[in-house]
């Protein structure tokens, strides 16, 4: 199990990286943290002619707050999210999520940009970005573009990135006072890809959701921001409403079949997660065990 031979280019700047990508197109692969690319290359599932290593572009690594935006550089590693006071203060959902991403040795190398660009529908970070209403910053031959997460993810391992593009950062609106978060996933073993997972952000006032964003993952070909959540906003949540919402959610999902779960199981688990999430965010444990739906 050895990677096929390739040409290696160590990008010296973002501009240099873009030049290399422009020259080689889809024969090139961007090497960021390598935690998804390297296994695929070792297994010869991917055999690029050229690997463009952007690992040395330190300007792409870092987390900073500017104005009402939390900007996370593409080369920011998962471990950086765990350690960042800015993330803890403004996007604690990411910190909670990263604890579920694989294992420490992977988190030390895997990058936020790599995770987003790889677009594995079962991975945590893309769903968090959907829940947090993030904007993905891309540079390409035509300059810089800002793409909303809903537009960015196009399918399994498919994104709005062209082979000439480089994902450089992701920008999140600051969560603001009173935001509540929920992250949970069901995986067979600690650190495995989730069978179903949920990253949620909510605003709660007077015992009601004033905003609720439910970012599901591993329920379809891309992270899914559930429309069903709207049913729960600005109303008093009752078991009946929750059941109705769960039914709407199950309808909305189009899960894949794989070795861990059938589509029916994924729909079921997504509704369980949603109930548990709503119960936790509203601090109403009775909603979790309602089972009235």
């Amino acid at each position: 199990m050895k990677a096929a031979a390739f040409t290696y280019a160590r990008a010296t700047s973002v501009v240099n990286a873009l030049e290399l990508l422009a020259a080689h197109g889809d024969k090139a692969k961007v090497l960021s943290g390598g935690q998804s690319l390297m296994p695929a290359m070792n297994l010869r599932l991917v055999s690029p002619d050229i690997v463009v290593d952007i690992g040395g572009l330190t300007e792409l690594r870092g987390i900073a707050v500017s104005g009402d935006v939390l900007a996370i550089g593409a080369l920011t590693r998962h471990v950086d999210l765990l350690r960042s006071p800015e993330v803890a203060a403004h996007a604690p959902l990411l910190r909670d999520a990263v604890a579920h991403v694989a294992h420490p040795a992977i988190r030390n190398r895997g990058t936020v940009g790599g995770s987003l660009a790889h677009a594995d529908p079962a991975s945590e970070i893309p769903a968090c970005m959907a829940a947090l209403d993030a904007t993905i910053v891309v540079r390409g031959p035509g300059g810089e573009r800002r793409i909303a997460t809903a537009e960015f993810f196009r399918g399994i391992y498919e994104t709005a990135l062209s082979p000439q593009d480089l994902l450089v950062a992701v920008e999140l609106p600051l969560s603001g006072e009173g935001a509540r978060f929920f992250f949970q996933e069901y995986a067979r073993r600690h650190g495995d890809y989730a069978i179903v997972g949920l990253a949620a952000r909510a605003l709660v006032g007077g015992g009601q959701f004033t905003d609720l964003r439910l970012g599901f993952f591993a329920v379809g070909d891309r992270p899914l921001l559930a429309d069903a959540a709207r049913k729960l906003i600005n109303v008093s949540v009752t078991p009946a409403l929750l059941a109705e919402t769960a039914a709407a959610l199950a309808e909305e999902l189009d899960p894949e079949e794989d070795q861990q779960a059938s589509p029916a199981m994924r729909r079921h688990l997504a509704t369980v997660l949603m109930r548990r999430c709503v119960a936790a965010l509203l601090e109403r444990p009775e909603l979790e065990t309602g089972g009235a739906w």
Binding site: I195, S262, H268
Partner: peptide, 13 residues
Amino acid sequence: LTPQVILTALGRI
């Protein structure tokens, strides 16, 4: 005894 086997036996799915 996977979660799918358990849920199926319980009639949940």
